[in-house]
């Protein structure tokens, strides 16, 4: 009971801030008589969400598949690449420069290539999102795997622990907080990447709705799409935070609530 009350007190200011913003938005639109195609009021945006012609559920699902797929692929790919990179100095000197080089590319500019190779659909969007979101996973995981006290490694080696034991007993658990930091970035970037993909290869999804809304001056549809995208990103982020509290209690136990 006390915990619930603490939670309410903790989140109340954030909720009030959002509500105040909505009220300001609502009355500014009315007071300054802003045209709907320039800046729609919150209730117009909300009403649009109930308009069946936009097929919100199927479009949201299309985007969701791309985001979720990209998130999972980036997580696995990022962790695997990080392990490869840290396993041997030679691998670091060969694989890492390639990754850094790849990361300097503007990923948006790669999108047309994926469409060219794979056509329209969820899969190219997913892969475009992966190119945007996997790199921070690699960097964070690699940092977590390597930032271990030298003496701690010596302690395990003095007991004749194998490289594999050092990895599973020390490096991997040590990397968990870093992996979760990477997952938080990954969650946000996967959403961005999926929308970028839909901008380029827009057959469906919320990104496609935004493009269509831009062309047809359907600003409420753009705002409604943005709301869903933002909710999707937030939901994914919150999932990561909850998982972090479960799997990395030693790093999060002191943080309230």
């Amino acid at each position: 009971m006390q915990k619930i009350r603490n939670n309410i007190y903790y989140y109340l200011p954030s909720i009030i801030a959002i509500l105040v913003l909505m009220v300001i938005w609502h009355f500014s639109v009315i007071v300054f008589d802003v045209k709907e195609y320039v800046f729609p009021a919150p209730d117009d945006t909300l009403m649009t969400l109930f308009d069946p012609k936009y097929r919100w559920i199927s479009n949201t699902l299309i985007t969701f598949y791309a985001v979720a797929g990209a998130f999972v692929i980036s997580t696995v790919l990022g962790i695997v690449l990080a392990i490869i990179v840290i396993w041997h100095p030679l691998l670091e000197r060969t694989v890492m420069p390639l990754l850094v080089l790849f990361n300097t590319l503007p990923k948006v500019a790669l999108a047309p290539l994926f469409v060219l190779w794979l056509g329209y659909g969820v899969v190219p969007n997913m892969l475009i999102a992966v190119t945007v979101s996997f790199f921070p996973m690699v960097i964070n995981t690699a940092a977590g795997l390597t930032q271990v006290d030298r003496d701690l490694i010596d302690l395990v080696r003095s007991l004749k622990g194998t490289k594999r034991q050092i990895f599973s007993l020390i490096r991997l658990p040590n990397a968990l907080p870093y992996i979760f930091a990477g997952l938080k970035l990954n969650a946000t970037l996967s959403v961005i990447g999926a929308i970028v993909g839909e901008f380029v290869a827009s057959e469906g999804g919320l990104g496609a709705l935004i493009i269509i809304g831009g062309v047809t001056l359907d600003t409420p549809a753009i705002f409604a799409s943005l709301c869903i995208i933002s909710a999707m990103g937030l939901a994914l982020y919150v999932l990561v935070v909850i998982a972090e509290r479960i799997f990395v209690p030693w790093e999060t136990s002191e943080v309230q609530p």
């Binding site: 003496d151 701690l152 010596d154 302690l155 003095s158 004749k160 007993l169 020390i170 968990l176």
Partner: peptide
């Protein structure tokens, strides 16, 4: 070696997890 060696360092080096 290994089985018969115990080490203590300046830092406790306890595993946080």
């Amino acid at each position: 070696p290994g089985r018969d060696v115990g080490m203590v360092f300046q830092q406790p080096l306890l595993l946080k997890w």
